[in-house]
Design a protein around this nucleic acid. Structure first.
Length: 424
RNA sequence: GAGCCCAUAGCUCAGUAGGUUAGAGCGCCAGGUUGUGGCCCUGGAGGCCGUGGGUUCAAAUCCCAUUGGGCUCCCCA
């Protein structure tokens, strides 16, 4: 690589032709599924007020405490959004979407940013799609969100996933549970890993998440949140499970499933895949009944999920699924000479207006080089234009797979190519 | 923030008892067909062997540093 050239920042990747078609294909699945479920798209800015994210996600989370890309300009503090639930909630409040009546079913696709060390399935700029159902505390809302997420992967052909499900309770349940955890861990605190000892103070539930070898035996016997849920949370959890059963969505209850962001309440879920390596979650989410009030709205229950696009594609690749296909032109116009080149340009316009995908050479190369290029691009037909054709008003139409040629007028060529040849 | 691995052409990689002009396959460009692709043949372009220093008569090869990349921990999508 030349000395003076540039490359992307650490953890930022270019998506090139050949890959971009795969992205478009899964984006299409997401958009199509959203239509079936009647989720409506919302697009929020990539930059958000730093304070919104800090308050929404929680000061003590890793995301806020050490993974944000921030900068200031004048009085304003900007952050590259690390996730999209808080921004969507912000938009809901800002635009008074509650006044539109009913519940809001919103979905999004877009880049998110976290200043972590990159590894498989984790980049600094990564892409998430997700959905939020705002304004309902009913278990049916949780089920709808989960059904939407699950359906997208199902459509893509990703069948070997596991849906992990839990309830993390409401503040009241959480308090009694945290008390139980404190009572349980305090006597054995010295035997826990350093990180777990810290979490004992900050967020004892996270100890259950620990992967430290030394913690495992203690975690195995630790009290479970499900035993401390109050009646409301218990009923809600049962209601969600009942509806998932109803929808034929299988799940595995995981009483140790904890979500990383502070705003979650009650339902927590995660869709995991065995093909992702160390970062095994395709997506996750849950209920966040406290968030909207926390960032300045009226108390409003909501539930949502977020999924990683990069991990989606890793899962596809592991299963041998290649979403989308490389585009090929119907026609490649091969020209010889300046006049032919101009004719070709006009013909391109005509073809395209007829819905025929057409291109040509734009580097004034030899006929042979143009044919080679047409072959490389897998064009179905070539139109070959030189002085003879211009004089006769009839042009050579070459079928590239059959290798046969006909001399036709432009009108005949159009008729011959319509309806546009089918492409995969 | 911590650990491990890697670094030779556009891509995938050969190349160590250190020794003359650094290789292959694929890809790219051109010719063989003065207007015709895919197969084939021939030729060509393209590397200061990531960067800097050291050891040596001599370094892609040994040593140190540095940068970049990958993976893992932490955490998350």
């Amino acid at each position: 690589m030349a000395k003076d050239s540039f490359r992307t920042h650490h953890g930022m990747v270019d998506i090139l032709p050949g890959e971009s078609e795969q992205w478009q294909a899964i984006e299409k699945i997401i958009h199509d599924t959203a239509r079936e479920f009647h989720f409506r798209e919302i697009r929020t800015p990539v930059l958000e007020p730093t304070e919104l994210i800090a308050r929404g996600i929680g000061q003590l989370t890793d995301i806020v405490s050490k993974e944000m890309f921030t900068f200031s300009r004048g009085e304003d503090n900007y952050v590259l959004r690390p996730e999209c639930t808080a921004p969507v909630a912000r938009a809901y409040i800002q635009h008074h979407l509650d006044q539109r009546g009913g519940t809001q079913k919103l979905y999004y696709i877009g880049p998110m940013f976290r200043a972590e060390r990159p590894q498989k399935g984790r980049q600094r700029q990564f892409h998430q799609f997700g959905a939020e159902l705002i304004g309902s505390d009913a278990p049916a809302a949780d089920a709808e969100i989960i059904a939407f997420m699950v359906r997208i992967y199902e459509k893509a052909g990703i069948r070997n996933t596991t849906l992990k499900l839990n309830s993390v309770g409401d503040p009241e349940s959480r308090r009694s549970y945290q008390q139980a955890l404190h009572d349980y861990f305090r006597p054995i605190l010295g035997q826990l890993s350093e990180i777990s000892q810290q979490r004992f103070e900050t967020n004892p539930m996270r100890i259950l998440d620990s992967k430290e070898e030394e913690d495992q035996p203690f975690i195995a016997d630790a009290p479970l949140i499900t035993d401390y849920l109050n009646e409301e949370c218990r009923n809600h959890y049962a209601g969600v499970k009942e509806r998932l059963d109803l929808l034929g969505i299988s799940y595995t209850e995981d009483p140790r499933l904890v979500r990383g962001l502070d705003y979650y309440t009650k339902t927590a879920f995660e869709l995991v895949s065995p093909d992702l390596g160390s970062q095994d979650a395709l997506g996750g989410g849950g209920r966040y009944d406290l968030l909207i009030e926390e960032i300045g709205g009226r108390p409003t229950p909501a539930v949502g999920f977020a999924s990683g696009m990069e991990r989606f594609l890793i899962a596809c690749e592991a299963l041998g699924i290649t979403p989308g296909s490389d585009p090929v032109p119907d026609v490649y116009i091969v020209t010889r000479g300046d006049e032919a080149g101009k004719w070709g340009l006009r013909m391109l316009k005509t073809l395209r207006e007829a819905g025929i995908r057409a291109t040509m050479d734009f580097a004034a190369r030899s006929v042979k080089a143009q044919m080679k290029d047409a072959n490389r691009e897998q064009a179905r037909f070539c139109i070959i234009v030189g002085e003879d054709e211009l004089k006769q008003g009839r042009f050579t139409l070459r079928n590239m797979s059959e290798s046969d040629e006909q001399m036709l007028t432009p009108d005949e060529i159009l008729t011959r190519l319509q309806p546009p040849v089918q492409s995969p």
